[in-house]
Design a protein around this nucleic acid. Sequence first.
DNA 1: TTGAAAGCGCTAACAC
DNA 2: GTGTTAGCGCTTTCAA
Lengths: 354, 354
Amino acid sequence: MAREAVTIKDVARKAGVAISTVSSVINGHQQHVGPVTREKVLLAVKELGYRPNAIARSMVKRTTGTIGLVMTDVVSPLFNEVIIGVAEVMAAEGFQILISTEIGVENEDAAIETFRSKQVDGFIFMSRTQRYTTKGLTPLKKDKIPFVVINRYLADPEINQVLLDDFGNGWTATQHLIRLGHTRIATLCGPLHDALPWRSAVERNRGWQQALEAHGLPANQDWVIESPYTFKGGYQSVQRLLEIIKDSPDRPTALFVANDSMCVGALKALQDAGLRLPQEMAVVGIGDPAHLAYTFPATTTLSLPIIEAGRVAARILVNWIKNGKPEYAQSVTLNSNLIVRESCGAHLSGKFQS
Amino acid sequence: MAREAVTIKDVARKAGVAISTVSSVINGHQQHVGPVTREKVLLAVKELGYRPNAIARSMVKRTTGTIGLVMTDVVSPLFNEVIIGVAEVMAAEGFQILISTEIGVENEDAAIETFRSKQVDGFIFMSRTQRYTTKGLTPLKKDKIPFVVINRYLADPEINQVLLDDFGNGWTATQHLIRLGHTRIATLCGPLHDALPWRSAVERNRGWQQALEAHGLPANQDWVIESPYTFKGGYQSVQRLLEIIKDSPDRPTALFVANDSMCVGALKALQDAGLRLPQEMAVVGIGDPAHLAYTFPATTTLSLPIIEAGRVAARILVNWIKNGKPEYAQSVTLNSNLIVRESCGAHLSGKFQS
DNA sequence: TTGAAAGCGCTAACAC
DNA sequence: GTGTTAGCGCTTTCAA
């Protein structure tokens, strides 16, 4: 801060008017101030280089024009993108964003406390791990503090949430392969039976299964390979799958991979095994397009709308703050876009239309 | 904010002591408060669920424990990473981070104004475009507001800067190829002669040139292809290069690509032209490892230490804030790490040792 | 060792 | 129309 900041008092003195008059013109309360006085004030403001102290203002208005963005996992570049969406609408609405420096789910409560003491007007929570807990959020709810939660799938219907359509993604990815003519579709499904199972894995797998069933195709459980959401997991899963199917007369011709990191590993393993892609194995993934556009072949993928999730959450939050109450308790589920690239073989088959 | 927040006054009343006593125990001014009084206060704090109002505190202490992070380009995932580094040290130091919602260089001044009115204790500027200007920073300097600048290469020696070693990156990348036995090395250099030339392009190109000269090798200017830092730029540059060298007996066997997006485009173009990589063309790039690890072949690259830049900048800033003055005017240049993957052919040649 | 009171910079009644 | 004044919640002399 400037050592000797000029205050509203200085402006008032310089302009030869009262403090409250200055306040009026600063805040555009035009009703009560004459044009000449107004000019005098404006002049003084300019000459002194006066900059209103937002802290002092917050003090009396009891609102800061600042929201807290709590990310349990700043480390993920993909999920970082939520900032872009949030920033976009907050800029338009004149809010500032405080981001949590405390990293990791376990520090979420600390972040909430810090932000509350800083008097943020509301919160956005972004998590990657899809925890089911509401623990840290309960006090917020009780104190009627505006907040919206992204990607957390909480059971509480009173909480405003923005969700990604995991089931739909699994369904769409699989259906895309079916439309391309594949009838035997395997899947790398992620951590389905972990200590705490990942909701996204479970849902995406359900999508795969139901899409197949809806088309009267078999959802062969031997072709469901579980592994962590990692490059290595994807690589090893493919090796396992290849082992399982090696003597099979009816090998799968397509593969749905439920996560981006896994998908890159899978592609690598497939190529290391000498398979031609997509001719001998068509692949569809889910996740970050920035990554998957650069694989070889470029990966057809369902692109998670993270930026849009940020926008939507921000809009809900801003409305809530401005109106003093939530529009209504809502849970918005965002669909993904299917980005057709090369790995699914659509560019070869010519079969895929829509 | 909670509608009816409990204040220090409530605590004082409940504990049967004076406001100033509560303040003392809250802030750990142990000197002046007896153990029984202290306990009474602590109890009241707990029972009431008192949370100090940081805004009110800031008001009188004239410091907010908040810094402003101004990014001219939030849209770049790579440069977003700076947040991670900054957050890491700010968390440890107990500062919060306000991020600029105003996007684009042209809005930098607006961001500065907003943050100043919010009384941030200091600034970190992160830019991608390496503007030479000091315009918006001059008032900060004049008012002795702590700030540090990342990736901007300002001439003013009094400004604290964190820089990336563009020249060194060009040099190292090229030298790596030389060590692998290449003697004819082309380069895609980026926007060297643009309306406003990109410093990074100029410097990286200088690194390429001098590394070659240092080894007594020709820096063939016909093999310097200019284009924007884009996927398309890289793709087209390779096409141009291939055209130029197609009848040449002494074709280049290696390529230094001065930017990550360009590099991905280049790889694609090379493969589309039917070249085997890295056997017929070895490639080294610069930029984001997350991207370039997934190309085919995986790209050997100089990985820009963006997170580290955030850390370093944050440390300098925090010191400045805490001591009331900068440690000294410094300009820290960070070297990149060479990440050896497949595109350079090191795994085949066995020549590369260090 | 504790408490009273001034004041941080600003807004918003309420008088004039 | 314009000015006076009482806070917002807290820290910090300074007395007691």
